[in-house]
């Protein structure tokens, strides 16, 4: 079983199938137990532009747009000190191809993404989630083990840190497997209210007489 309900929490376990994402919608809060690999700018570029295979198998598992602070423990062991999501939008132009190539199911980052990712989520059955930013210590303690580190030539922030996590979250679904986009829908509402407020305030600030 890949979707567990525990104390009111919805927890995904990998391997995650398309079917498992069927009842998950934008705005839902979920958690992840299993595998998540940090993967950001250069790693996306290598997969999509250079056609190199990702050295960590993320099929039916998760990636995290983040550059962590890691403490080496010796003997090729590492500890996660601090990890926070980075702006997902930077990966937007690669995410369709990346999802197609790697078969990733859950993409975690900061802020919204756009059409390419919507298309990928809908076609291949994936979701994009937001981990609330600025909570680097919470995220770090939810990492139970770093199981491997690949593409270390990229330096600490860009290395693929393959982590074992337990109830990693809260993850808020921003794009679901139907291609609905939480932020884009919200923005319409925000902009409408903004225009109303500009009008309202403007009536009261005629200080130049």
């Amino acid at each position: 079983m890949s979707v567990e309900l525990k104390d009111g929490k919805k927890i995904l376990h990998n391997p995650i199938s398309r079917e498992d994402l069927k009842d998950i919608h934008i705005g839902d809060i979920i958690y992840l137990t299993g595998d998540i690999t940090t993967c950001r700018d250069v790693a996306h570029r290598r997969v999509v532009e250079e056609g190199r295979p990702l050295p960590v198998d993320v099929r039916d598992a998760a990636i995290l747009h983040a550059g962590p602070i890691i403490r080496p423990l010796g003997d090729d062991k590492f500890e996660m000190v601090s990890v926070g999501p980075t702006t997902s939008m930077r990966m937007e132009k690669f995410e369709y191809e990346f999802t197609k190539e790697t078969g990733v199911r859950v993409i975690v980052g900061k802020g919204g993404m756009k059409e390419n990712t919507e298309r990928a989520c809908k076609e291949f059955g994936a979701i994009h989630c937001v981990f609330p930013a600025g909570n680097a210590v919470v995220a770090a303690v939810e990492v139970k083990e770093i199981v491997e580190a690949q593409w270390r030539d990229l330096g600490m922030p860009e290395t693929l840190w393959h982590c074992h996590v337990e109830e990693f979250g809260p993850l808020i679904v921003s794009i679901d497997s139907y291609g609905r986009n939480y932020f884009e829908e919200k923005k319409v509402e925000y902009n409408k209210k903004k225009d109303e407020q500009i009008e309202l305030i403007s009536k009261q600030v005629g200080f130049i007489k």
Partner: peptide
């Protein structure tokens, strides 16, 4: 962050 003595945001 206070308990583990780490920066609260990375």
């Amino acid at each position: 962050a206070v308990k583990l003595n780490r920066p609260s945001c990375q």
